[in-house]
Structures are given as structure tokens and as C-alpha cells.
């Protein structure tokens, strides 16, 4: 969960850096509704659109993960810099 930033924006930004994530499960790929699973585990309403899912395989390396973490920090920082949402 990355508060104050929208999931799809994170997805597109990361995809430009060669990192591919998703905003929801494959079975809900065609709808834009917020995840009922996340809401069931108690995530507050205004954070339901701020999530991405990372999928890892056995062939992913530590280097790739380090690169992802570095890029993710940049992406979130950039998107938050012009987010209108007051920090709660």
C-alpha cells in the first residue's frame, strides 16, 4: 500500500523502467473496482486504490529486487510530489 498515490500510476511509471507489476489479481483485470479482499482485511476506503501486487518467480535475482526497490522509491516520491491529498 502506497498512500496518496494511485496504483495504476505506479504500474505505468515502473513499467517504463522495465519493472512489471499489477494493480490487482488476474481475475479482476477487466474491472476497475477496488479489491474486495483488501477491503475485507480492513484497509481503509481511501487507501483501496493505492495498491500494487508484486509477483516473484524462482528465477528472479537479488539484483533485480534491489533495482526494483530503488526504482519504486523514486516513483513514489515523484508521484507524491504532486498528490493533492492532505497527509493524514
Amino acid at each position: 500500500m502506497f498512500g496518496y498515490v494511485e496504483g495504476e500510476a505506479i504500474l505505468i511509471d515502473l513499467s517504463q523502467k522495465g519493472i512489471y507489476v499489477s494493480t490487482g489479481s488476474a481475475c479482476s483485470a477487466t474491472n476497475l473496482k477496488a479489491s474486495y479482499v483488501l477491503s475485507a482485511i480492513g484497509l481503509e476506503k481511501h487507501f483501496l486504490n493505492s495498491n500494487i501486487r508484486f509477483s516473484l518467480g524462482r528465477f528472479n535475482t537479488k539484483t533485480e529486487i534491489d533495482y526494483t526497490v530503488k526504482c519504486l522509491a523514486q516513483t513514489i516520491k515523484r508521484l507524491r510530489s504532486f498528490s493533492p491529498v492532505e497527509k493524514i
Partner: peptide, 26 residues
């Protein structure tokens, strides 16, 4: 899942400056 804030600065009936903040997709 989307929110936009617009700010306007107007001078002599023209938009002199306009800025926005966004919580939304690409």
C-alpha cells in the same frame, strides 16, 4: 480512485497561470 485539484490565476480576462495536483492514474 481519481482526484484533481485545479488552481487558476486570472489577469485581464485571461488565464495567466494554471496548476494542478493529481491523485490518479497515468
Amino acid at each position: 480512485g481519481d482526484q484533481l485539484d485545479f488552481f487558476l490565476k486570472v489577469e485581464k480576462g485571461k488565464i495567466k497561470d494554471v496548476k494542478f495536483l493529481s491523485f490518479g492514474c497515468a
